[in-house]
C-alpha cells in the first residue's frame, strides 16, 4: 500500500514539475501565437528579416555541427585511447563551455577579434570582418556547443574497449580502415545522440551570438535574436510565431532521437 503510494506520489510530483516548468510556458506560447488565427503568425514568419534570421541560424548550425562532430570524435578517441601529456587538461577544457556563461564567451571573442583585439588588428588590416559578421557567430556557436559529441562518445568508447580494434589491426586493417569499419560503427549511436544535442544547442544559442553579432536586422540576426528584437518592438505575435518554430524544431529533434535510438542500446 505504502509502496503504491510512494510510487504514485513520485509520478505526480515529477509530472507536476514538468507541467509547471516546461509544458505551461510552451502551451502559453502556442496559445498566444494562434490566438487570432494562423494568418497573423504566418505573416510574422514571412517577413524578409525573419526569413533571413532563420536562414542564418541554419547556416551557422550547418557549419558548427559537422565541425564539432569531427572534433568531438577525435577528442573522445584521444582521451580514451591515447596517452599524451596534457590529456587531463583536455578532458577538463572540453567541459568548459558547459560551465561558462555564453555571454562570457561572447565577450572573450569580442576581446580577441575586436578592433583592438589580439587577432582583430591583423584581420582588419587584411580586410577580413570577423566581428559583427558570420565568422564570429559561427565561432561563438561552435564554442558553446563543443562538448556534446565528445561527452556522448567517451563513455561508449570506454565501454566497448579496444579489443575489436586490435583484432582489426591483426587482420591487416590500417588505422583508417579500423576507424571507419570498426570504431565508428561501434560508437554510431553515441555520435548520433551527440549530433542531435549539438544541433539543439546551436539552434537555441543566444548569449554568445548576441554579443558578437551586433544584431544587425536582416544581416546578423539569428532566429533567437529575432525573437528578442520582435519582443522589444512590442510585436508579440511575431516573437511568439518565431518561438513556436524554434520550439517545434527542438521537439522534432528530440522525438527523432527517441525514435531512432534502438531499444536497450546505450547511447
Amino acid at each position: 500500500m505504502r509502496n503504491l503510494f510512494t510510487r504514485l506520489g513520485l509520478r505526480v510530483v515529477a509530472l507536476l514539475y514538468l507541467a509547471v516548468i516546461l509544458l505551461g510556458p510552451l502551451a502559453i506560447v502556442f496559445w498566444r501565437t494562434f490566438e487570432d488565427g494562423v494568418a497573423p503568425a504566418w505573416d510574422a514568419l514571412t517577413t524578409p528579416e525573419t526569413i533571413n534570421a532563420f536562414k542564418l541560424t541554419l547556416i551557422i548550425t550547418a557549419i558548427a555541427v559537422p565541425v564539432n562532430t569531427v572534433f568531438g570524435i577525435v577528442c573522445a578517441i584521444a582521451i580514451v585511447r591515447r596517452k599524451f601529456p596534457g590529456k587531463a587538461l583536455l578532458n577538463v577544457f572540453i567541459d568548459l563551455p558547459l560551465a561558462l556563461s555564453p555571454v562570457v564567451v561572447g565577450l572573450a571573442l569580442f576581446l580577441l577579434y575586436g578592433r583592438e583585439g589580439w587577432f582583430g588588428t591583423w584581420l582588419s588590416d587584411h580586410g577580413i570582418d570577423v566581428l559583427f559578421a558570420l565568422p564570429s557567430m559561427v565561432i561563438a556557436t561552435i564554442f558553446v556547443s563543443l562538448p556534446f559529441v565528445a561527452r556522448e562518445v567517451v563513455p561508449t568508447l570506454r565501454e566497448i574497449g579496444d579489443e575489436q580494434e586490435q583484432a582489426a589491426r591483426t587482420l591487416g586493417a590500417t588505422g583508417w580502415q579500423t576507424f571507419w569499419r570498426i570504431t565508428l560503427p561501434s560508437i554510431r549511436w553515441a555520435v548520433i545522440y551527440g549530433v542531435i544535442l549539438t544541433t539543439a544547442r546551436c539552434l537555441g544559442e543566444y548569449g554568445a551570438v548576441a554579443v558578437v553579432s551586433g544584431r544587425l536586422q536582416g544581416e546578423t540576426e539569428t532566429a533567437t535574436l529575432r525573437v528578442q528584437e520582435r519582443y522589444d518592438a512590442f510585436d508579440l505575435a511575431g516573437a511568439y510565431a518565431i518561438s513556436i518554430v524554434l520550439a517545434l524544431t527542438a521537439i522534432l529533434v528530440l522525438v527523432a532521437m527517441t525514435v531512432i535510438r534502438p531499444r536497450g542500446e546505450a547511447a
Partner: peptide, 20 residues
C-alpha cells in the same frame, strides 16, 4: 613492424568479435 603488416592471425580469449 605494425601488427597489420606482420601477416599474423590472432585469436582473443574473449573473442573480440565485431559485434555489428
Amino acid at each position: 613492424l605494425a601488427p597489420q603488416r606482420r601477416n599474423i592471425g590472432f585469436v582473443f580469449q574473449h573473442y573480440a568479435a565485431f559485434k555489428h
